[in-house]
Amino acid sequence: MNRGRMLKSAVAMAAVSSLSFGCGSEAERRAFPVEVTAATLSQEPNERGWRIVLDSAHVSVGPVRFFEGRVLLSSRATPRFDWYSLIGGTAHAHPGHYVPGDALGELLETHTVDLLGGVSVMGTASAVTGEYGSLELTLATPTDAQGVLKGHAVRVVGTATNPDGGQVRFDVDADLPKPVAGVRFEKSLGTEMGRVRISVDLRKWMDRIDFATATDPDADGVYTFPADSQARNALLRGVEDTTAYVVTWEEGAVQ
């Protein structure tokens, strides 16, 4: 997030806080835990006909910022042309106009999350009560370049099998140039006990990939995705897809 956007968020948070305690408005300070998990990857073939089994999937998450702005879906009956189809991708429905609006909360810590390891608690967001509409998710490059992410924001390892039985063992990574903005989270949040859970849909991450375009296997026969390949572009498209992140409010305390 650039300096201007950070200042805007800080001013918005200060304004909400001031309104809450200086004018007797409905907004109140509150805090809630933020969790990250992943939906189970189904064994159905992806859009390119490959069945995928993941050995590991890790992501570096944070900061997470919450906003009042809602994600407005496009009302077009027929989607406009998607340039990505020219290189073998598939056009997908996407959100329409999105304005973040005022900032309502934030969690500033960054954590490496094992997406196959169950639910991970990232920390506690500082926030206020109000009408939540969306969040912004930063998938940051981790500071520990020697860790499981090898200095990247995302790393997935596994095996893909095509209909003819051919297999591609892969170990690939991804980095995004900017946060994933406009992730839907609609909640009228008061002071009730609960936490936010962000569920990563690994299917959405992997669905567009044609593993036949993976190349450059190492000595053990493990493939990577070259920068100009369909596989690399498809992975990046999946990771930046806002619908790959399902955000819910879970009632009750963290177990």
Rank of each mutant, 00 (worst) to 15 (best):
E35A: 14
L54R: 10
F67C: 00
G62E: 02
T40E: 13
V64D: 05
E44W: 03
V71A: 09
V36N: 01
L73S: 13
W50Q: 11
S42N: 09
T40P: 05
G69Y: 03
E44A: 14
T37Q: 07
L72Y: 11
A38V: 12
F66M: 08
F67V: 00
T37C: 11
G69I: 00
Q43C: 03
S74A: 05
V34Q: 00
D55Y: 08
V61N: 06
I52A: 03
S56G: 12
W50E: 10
V36R: 00
P45N: 11
E68C: 07
P45T: 11
R51C: 09
P33D: 10
G62N: 05
V71C: 04
S42L: 08
V59C: 12
W50N: 05
G69H: 01
S74Q: 08
D55Q: 14
D55F: 10
V36G: 03
V61Q: 09
S60W: 01
G69R: 02
V53D: 15
L73C: 06
D55G: 15
R51N: 10
V34E: 02
L72E: 15
V59S: 14
N46L: 10
T37V: 06
R70P: 03
E35Q: 14
I52M: 08
A38H: 11
S42D: 11
A38E: 12
L54Q: 10
D55N: 14
R48E: 15
W50K: 08
G49Y: 10
R70T: 13
S74I: 00
P63N: 00
H58A: 06
G49E: 13
R76G: 02
P63D: 01
V71Q: 05
P33N: 05
P45K: 07
N46W: 12
S60T: 08
S75I: 07
V61R: 02
T40C: 04
G49A: 06
P45F: 04
N46M: 11
V34W: 00
N46K: 09
L41A: 10
G69C: 04
S75F: 05
P33A: 04
P63H: 02
V64K: 03
V36M: 02
R70L: 08
F66D: 09
E35P: 02
A39T: 13
L73A: 10
V53G: 12
V61H: 08
A38M: 12
G62Y: 01
A57S: 08
G69W: 01
S56M: 05
P33C: 04
I52R: 09
Q43Y: 09
I52C: 04
F67Q: 00
V71I: 12
E35M: 08
W50F: 15
V64R: 04
A57K: 07
G69V: 01
